[in-house]
């Protein structure tokens, strides 16, 4: 295994493009090193992106925030401005693993590892976050939901690398939230995860909403019917019940060591309702 720590995005793209054999990008390494240890992955080249200055930056941009691919989740959690604008995304990012993992893991890494249970991904999808991809043919922008295609698989072409994720600005009276279910209180992989983002009108009626589900299908998915169930309502009991039902209906889960299909379907609805209520509170400024 060869290790490289380039100083620029171009250099990283160059290394990736020219790589013979298996190449992997190292950001926080919290997934990659586990794969190395177990022997499930034996890359020929590992490209550490933490020496690329723009990858390590978290900056305000057009009323939103750009999160560099090498920014650890802990740094995101320590940023009061990001927490204020996108509390749901930050809480999702801060649920990934322990304090120790937080010190290394990045949301872009979480995205590119392409686990269907990645905590930050449903939250970022609800937030309509956009990933910037650099490659041999220049830059392109992709909705975060289009990066993962299946467990462990991404839409990135050879030589391409996600350099940052952009969290957009948002109108007044907006709120987001992410909730996940795990058997313990910490340290587990999500059995179900739900991100909800919504915006209220001055009259308190929900004008726009996005609901995303994790760990209930081969990749995180947008539950459009669930969002429709609350748009145009004040999130009354009836609307929330419809949201829960639609969230459950959107699930296409499997039985595995972490939970049953039946459990995931039921709990997806429960968490969708709870996350919507939390997002609503935030939108109301409570």
């Amino acid at each position: 295994m060869q290790y490289e720590a380039p100083a620029t995005i171009d250099a990283a793209v160059g290394l990736l493009s020219k790589a013979q054999g298996l190449a992997r990008v190292l950001a926080g390494g919290t997934d990659l090193l586990v794969q190395l240890k177990s022997g499930t992955l034996e890359p020929d080249l590992v490209i550490d992106i933490k020496r690329i200055p723009e990858m390590t930056k978290l900056v305000a941009e057009n009323g939103g925030f750009r999160i560099g691919a090498a920014v650890p989740c802990a740094v995101l959690g320590e940023n009061a401005a990001v927490r204020k604008l996108w509390p749901g995304v930050v809480e999702a990012a801060n649920l990934i693993g322990s304090t120790q993992i937080q010190g290394r893991a990045t949301v872009v890494g979480n995205l590119c590892n392409a686990s269907p249970a990645a905590d930050s991904v449903p939250a970022m999808m609800a937030a309509n976050a956009i990933a910037t991809v650099a490659g041999p043919n220049g830059k392109r922008e992709v909705p975060v939901g289009d990066i993962a295609t299946a467990p462990g698989k991404t839409s990135l072409a050879k030589g391409e690398i996600v350099t940052s994720v952009f969290l957009p600005s948002r109108p007044a009276h907006s709120g987001d939230a992410y909730l996940r279910f795990i058997p313990r209180t910490e340290m587990d992989i999500a059995v179900v995860g739900v991100g909800v983002s919504l915006t209220l009108g001055d009259d308190g009626v929900c004008k726009a909403a996005r609901v995303a589900l994790g760990a209930v299908a081969a990749r995180a998915l947008l539950a459009e019917d669930a969002a429709k169930a609350i748009v145009g309502t004040k999130l009354d009991e009836k609307a929330l019940a419809k949201l829960a039902e639609a969230a459950s209906a959107a699930c296409r889960p499997i039985d595995d060591k972490r939970g049953t299909k039946e459990f995931r379907i039921k709990v997806a609805g429960v968490l969708a309702r709870r996350a919507a209520e939390k997002a609503l509170e935030r939108a109301r400024g409570k």
Binding site: Y3, A5, G28, K37, D48, K50, G97, T99, Q100, G103
Partner: peptide, 24 residues
């Protein structure tokens, strides 16, 4: 990275040293 017994800090940041490469 699941047990924390290898905890160290790198540039003041708490990490699991089993999830950091020596070259890093």
């Amino acid at each position: 990275g699941d047990c924390g017994a290898c905890s160290v800090t790198v540039d003041g940041r708490l990490v699991c040293s089993c999830l950091v490469l020596g070259v890093e």
